Simulated scan of single mutants.
Amino acid sequence: IESTITIDSSASKVVGRGQIVKAPKTKNSYRTIYIHETLKKELLNYYISEKTKYNYNIKNHFVFGGIKMIGFSTLDRRFKKYKEKAKVSDMNLHGFRHSHATMLLELTNDIYNVSKRLGHDNMETTEIYLHSNSKAQKDLSDRIEAEIQNIIITNSFKTLKDNLQKILLQEITKNMYNNNEINSIMSIYEYVNKVM
């Protein structure tokens, strides 16, 4: 309803107990994050179809697995199948978290809020994604260079325009031109003055 997901548990494999749901690792791991409208609709449609399937009798429900949590090995097998089908490079499921963090930091430099969204204890952990993203670093460098070049070009043009205006005004004040020539110089001056 609020377009949020609350993270208050974590799936984990514990020796001697198997796969369990337990409390998150740290205090910051407990969090509520906003989701976009497309994901909200997908999850809502899935939830409604599952409630209908189980006669509206659902206490706990897992996005992967249904009323019972899917096994990690089954999830890995399915993930491998879809990676092969999509012909994408190899990565593990945790790679989605890394991709998400990298994309967020490419879209914004808001390390604080990205850190909160990921549930990191400190922003230094989040900065690893920023430092490891060479594409974002190169893009940033290219944007800085483009801005510098724009300033140089703008300043060069402004200097040229200022010099032209000064020369034209000096020429107008001289008594060596007839009226037609002065009108022509004034037209040139006004044209230069209009140019950005």
Rank of each mutant, 00 (worst) to 15 (best):
N113P: 00
L105S: 00
T32H: 04
V114K: 00
H98I: 03
G119A: 02
S115A: 05
F72L: 05
K135H: 08
F96W: 11
S184T: 00
E106K: 07
G65P: 07
K40C: 05
E42H: 08
S9F: 00
E181R: 04
R78A: 04
Y54D: 06
T126N: 06
Q137K: 15
N163V: 05
Y191G: 02
H98P: 05
N133Y: 05
D110P: 05
F62Y: 15
E106P: 00
K53G: 01
N155K: 14
F72V: 03
T74P: 03
N155Q: 15
N92W: 09
I48F: 10
Y129D: 02
L39G: 08
M196Q: 14
S12Y: 11
L168E: 01
Y129R: 00
T38G: 07
S3L: 14
D139R: 09
I185E: 03
Q165D: 06
T126Y: 00
S134F: 06
K27M: 05
N57K: 15
I152Q: 11
T159K: 13
S132Y: 06
I151V: 10
K81P: 04
K116W: 03
I33K: 06
N92A: 04
K83Y: 02
L118R: 03
T154H: 12
S132E: 15
S184H: 03
M123N: 13
I182L: 00
N183D: 13
Q170M: 12
M186Q: 15
K13E: 14
Q19N: 07
H120I: 01
E84A: 11
V14W: 07
K13R: 14
I48T: 12
M69C: 07
H98R: 13
S10W: 09
I48N: 14
K166D: 12
D110E: 06
M186K: 15
N155A: 10
K87L: 06
T108A: 01
E124A: 13
G65M: 05
K116M: 06
A136V: 02
S99C: 09
D142H: 04
R143K: 13
I111L: 11
Y82W: 12
A86T: 04
R97Y: 04
M69K: 12
S9P: 03
D90T: 10
S49Y: 02
V21I: 15
